[in-house]
């Protein structure tokens, strides 16, 4: 019994091998077997998993010339997205809008690429034009939609929206960002200017540049004193030179206080944006998991 099976198996194998070698005999004229669609696809997938996206795209494009595959279109879009070529990624996702299985996920990715590119206005219009019923990824999109308000200068929506769309795990973090966004702790440029007009350097001290403020105060008082002293001693020319310098540094001190406040505020915005982007990155921009890509 056992011997018999081996025998049949071997016979089968011989036939198989003969057939195969016959086939190969015919194809020796075209030795580029590695460039068959199947093999290009396999190799492309390997490159994709190695994150060698540009080369993977080339392989996928070659495959797409021969057959249509929504998954591959998506993977090309995804590759461009990973390479930070967002408009290109977007154009590939656009091709999937009529796809049966991938249109919803493509819609989300279009939103996400716009978000990553910083087109927050576009994200808003895209999201508002969509209906919650026709998209399984509506909650994911909503999270990105409300995140845009954190990163641009538009008025924040009511906090209940954030409580609604962000789940338990992320809610407390988002609410912290929400509070930070409402009370950023900016320094007023006007107040800085007024303070420096009254007492030179005070505006800078208010903004936190204590050393610069004291220096500005000293510059103004020394130059002012020198101007006054020379007027008193009837050194007209010197007096006017010092008066001019005092005026210049007095103006410069007010100007500098305003710009120092601006830079301070830019720092607050910068740190907020950075922290919020780290938060988004931690949650992978609320993307769903794409199991189909690993097929």
């Amino acid at each position: 019994m056992k011997v018999n099976t081996i025998k049949y198996f071997t016979v089968f194998q011989i036939i198989f091998v003969l057939l195969n070698s016959n086939l190969i005999g015919q194809t020796t004229a075209a030795p580029t077997n590695y460039f068959s669609i199947r093999n290009r696809l396999k190799f492309g997938n390997d490159l994709f998993s190695q994150k060698d996206y540009l080369r993977a795209i080339d392989e996928y494009q070659a495959v797409l010339k021969k057959m249509r595959s929504d998954t591959l279109l998506f993977k090309i879009g995804y590759s461009y997205e990973q390479m930070k070529c967002f408009p290109k990624a977007n154009s590939f996702y656009q091709k999937l809008l009529n796809s049966k299985s991938l249109s919803e996920i493509a819609k989300f990715e279009i939103l996400k690429t716009n978000f990553l590119e910083g087109n927050y206005g576009k994200v808003k219009t895209l999201h508002i034009s969509q209906d919650s019923s026709d998209n399984a990824y509506y909650p994911n999109e909503a999270k990105l939609f409300y995140s845009t308000y954190m990163l641009d200068q538009n008025e924040l929506p009511d906090s209940s929206n954030y409580k609604l769309w962000f789940n338990e795990a992320t809610q407390s973090e988002v609410m912290k960002f929400y509070r930070r966004k409402i009370n950023p702790g900016y320094k007023s440029e006007t107040l800085a200017a007024v303070l420096s007009t009254v007492v030179p350097g005070l505006g800078k001290i208010y903004v936190g540049e204590t050393g610069d403020g004291i220096t500005a105060f000293l510059f103004n008082s020394i130059l002012g004193f020198l101007a006054y002293d020379n007027f008193r001693a009837h050194h007209k020319l010197r007096a006017w030179i010092f008066t001019g310098l005092t005026a210049l540094f007095y103006g410069g001190n007010i100007y500098g206080s305003i710009s120092a406040a601006q830079i301070y505020n830019a720092g607050i915005r910068f740190n907020f944006d950075k922290d919020f982007k780290v938060f988004l990155n931690n949650h992978n921009y609320f993307s769903p998991k794409y199991y189909f890509m690993n097929k």
Binding site: E209, D212, I214, L248, F249, G251, G252
Partner: peptide
């Protein structure tokens, strides 16, 4: 404006305190 910016820069440059 350039002169004012320069005056401010010069002040910051001379800052010895911090």
């Amino acid at each position: 404006q350039g002169a004012l910016m320069f005056a401010d820069r010069f002040t910051r440059d001379s800052n010895l305190f911090k």
